[in-house]
């Protein structure tokens, strides 16, 4: 501060007649504060990152178990160069590559694929994971991973068990019908009254993802697993 002796903390922060502060002091104050802040944040980031990542991985593992109805084991497949592969070429970052998961039963037979997909819902992107049985083209389970749908209405897509269980064993492509209009068709999903847009979004996300991955899965099963 300027050499003069002034009482700190009694009057307003701008005492009249205070000497003008040279620009380098302003820059150095902000620079020092910024550097200290950066150092602190990096420190906390390093300290918290492992448990954040571990939790995300745990949530994903549980979701895969849930939508594949408890497979004995599952493998991660990477979507690389227009095909599904278990091993990535060196230099390709596994975390930034799209992944789907293939589950196996006790006898080693394939029970299905779990895919994560995301598209806009009513308020924000809905991210969900669903299980898909390639041979019968059936969806075998669905779980919403992230959504900001309206509490009490749109969030029924994850909280209303009767809606969630509609996805256990429905044949793709899915077709949403209003409550009471169901005809018993195997493609039908009863949509939620009051959450039509959210229900429709879930159905659309699943249909689009199946369309996107079906050729890849067919190639994978036809070429490797036979």
């Amino acid at each position: 501060m300027s050499g003069e002796d002034r009482t700190i903390g009694v009057e307003s922060a701008v005492p009249a007649g205070q000497k003008e502060v040279p620009p380098w002091r302003l820059v150095s104050t902000l620079g020092t504060a910024g550097a200290l802040a950066g150092f602190l944040i990096v420190f906390v980031f390093v300290a918290t990152e492992p448990s954040i990542k571990a939790h995300k991985a745990l949530v994903l593992r549980q979701a895969i178990q849930e939508v594949l109805k408890g497979p004995a084991s599952f493998d991660t497949l990477f979507v690389y160069d227009g095909a599904l592969t278990e091993e990535l070429p060196a230099g390709q970052d596994p975390e930034s590559t799209d992944q789907i998961y293939v589950g196996f039963g006790d006898d080693g037979s394939q029970v299905g694929f779990a895919m994560v997909a995301a598209e806009p819902g009513f308020q924000d992107i809905i991210q969900l994971i669903f299980g898909y049985e390639a041979a019968s083209q059936r969806v075998i389970g669905m779980k919403v991973l992230e959504s900001l749908e309206t509490p009490g209405l749109g969030d029924k897509i994850e909280k209303d068990q009767s809606f969630v269980s509609e996805f256990d064993g429905v044949t793709s492509p899915l077709l949403g019908v209003k409550t009471g209009r169901a005809t018993g068709d195997e493609h039908e999903i009863d949509m939620i009254t009051g959450a039509t847009i959210s229900s429709r979004a879930v159905i659309k996300i699943i249909n689009n993802a199946i369309e996107r991955y079906r050729p890849l899965i067919a190639a994978h099963n036809g070429g490797g697993a036979q």
Binding site: G9, A13, Q18, V21, L26, T29, A33, G34, A37
Partner: peptide, 16 residues
């Protein structure tokens, strides 16, 4: 507070 010049106090507060 002694080290924060008056001109950049708000930005420094926000940074903190």
């Amino acid at each position: 507070k002694r080290f924060i010049p008056n001109e950049v106090r708000i930005s420094t507060f926000i940074l903190i």
